[in-house]
């Protein structure tokens, strides 16, 4: 081997020529269809072998490959020349039922911890693996649990790019309240929440930050050349206090002060509904401080929630 590394020449003492040729045959025929002449030329011009092989030798190697489990088929191209190709072989990556179960279970756990871009990458990766292993069950199992099973992946890819470039776009959206309509938004981000993917951005109509369920987006109608929606729409600043709990802050939250385990936070938002949801989830750990109007509405909502249990 040292001699080979030094001189790049092979000898019968160094390696098995039969083994080496068998590997080359396998490699050639898995790459794509090869005719007898192409195979003969390959070996004749090979830097280590320079060997003229016969048609009988080709047949012997093909028989040997078949014997170890390779599926070799003959195809005839437009030039009418017959070529050999390995359609399947025993060294393919295989996944048994148990392994498929494990991978789908882990994937299910994983999607709760990754962003939409990573999710998109993983979906493409699993599709590729599915094609490599030639196992329809694997692809079907992944599809069954996939958050993207009803999603147009090319639309998703474009929306990811739109969010990265903060594009002003028009989407055709199937709203549960008002049916299909065009909505113009300044795309901000895609997020996963409670098993659904949302496109988030500032809506043109209400000039407020909103979330749109991805699977309700029928198509991307247009990417506007110029941005006309103000990046910061009409916002309100909601101040709230969190006690005895670690805040889950996003880019719209700012900690104004921290005293022991009490945080005073200001959230700048254009969507009171989404903010209300977030603050409600904190339960009694959260007190809305200001503005008065938002605080009053919040208290009224809590009273209404309580009333539902007694009068509902």
């Amino acid at each position: 081997m040292k001699e080979f590394i030094k001189n790049q020449t092979v000898t019968y003492n160094l390696m098995s020529f039969t083994a080496y040729k068998a590997l080359l045959f396998f490699s050639m025929l898995t790459e794509g269809p090869k005719s007898a002449d192409e195979i003969i030329n390959f070996f004749l011009n090979h830097p280590y072998l320079h060997e003229k092989i016969s048609s009988d030798t080709i047949r012997v190697y093909i028989n040997s490959l078949k014997r170890i489990g390779c599926e070799i088929i003959r195809v005839r191209g437009e030039d009418k020349i017959s070529r050999y190709v390995i359609a399947d072989h025993p060294f393919n990556l295989k996944l048994d039922e148990e392994q498929i179960k494990s991978i789908t279970k882990i994937y299910r756990l994983l999607v709760k911890n990754i962003d939409v871009k990573e999710l998109y990458s993983l979906e493409l990766f699993f599709e590729k693996i599915g094609a490599y292993i030639k196992n329809d069950d694997f692809v079907a199992e992944i599809k069954k649990i996939s958050m993207l099973k009803d999603t147009d992946k090319s639309l998703l890819k474009t929306l990811i790019e739109c969010c990265e470039n903060k594009e002003q776009i028009v989407i055709s959206y199937n709203s549960p309240a008002s049916g299909v309509k065009n909505i113009e938004i300044l795309a901000d981000k895609l997020e996963i929440n409670n098993g659904k993917i949302y496109l988030c951005g500032v809506g043109f109509e209400y000039k407020q930050y909103a979330k749109f369920v991805l699977n309700r987006i029928k198509e991307l109608v247009m990417i506007k050349a110029e941005k006309t929606i103000p990046e910061i729409p009409n916002t309100i600043k909601v101040q709230y206090e969190l006690k005895g709990i670690k805040p889950e802050l996003d880019e719209y939250d700012k900690v104004l002060s921290k005293n022991s385990d009490v945080y005073l936070i200001e959230r700048e938002t254009s969507n009171a509904f989404l903010t209300r949801q977030k603050l409600l989830e904190y339960g009694s750990n959260c007190t809305v401080i200001a503005p008065k109007e938002f605080r009053d509405e919040f208290v009224q909502l809590l009273k209404d929630m309580k009333a539902e249990y007694y009068c509902g």
Binding site: T18, R59, V60, Y61, N63, F91
Partner: peptide, 20 residues
């Protein structure tokens, strides 16, 4: 010739199968 195969070739690929 239609059935002829090379035993060394078979053994080599058997070894590779074991390695996989």
């Amino acid at each position: 010739y239609n059935l002829k195969y090379n035993d060394s070739c078979i053994k080599l690929f058997e070894f590779i199968k074991m390695l996989y």
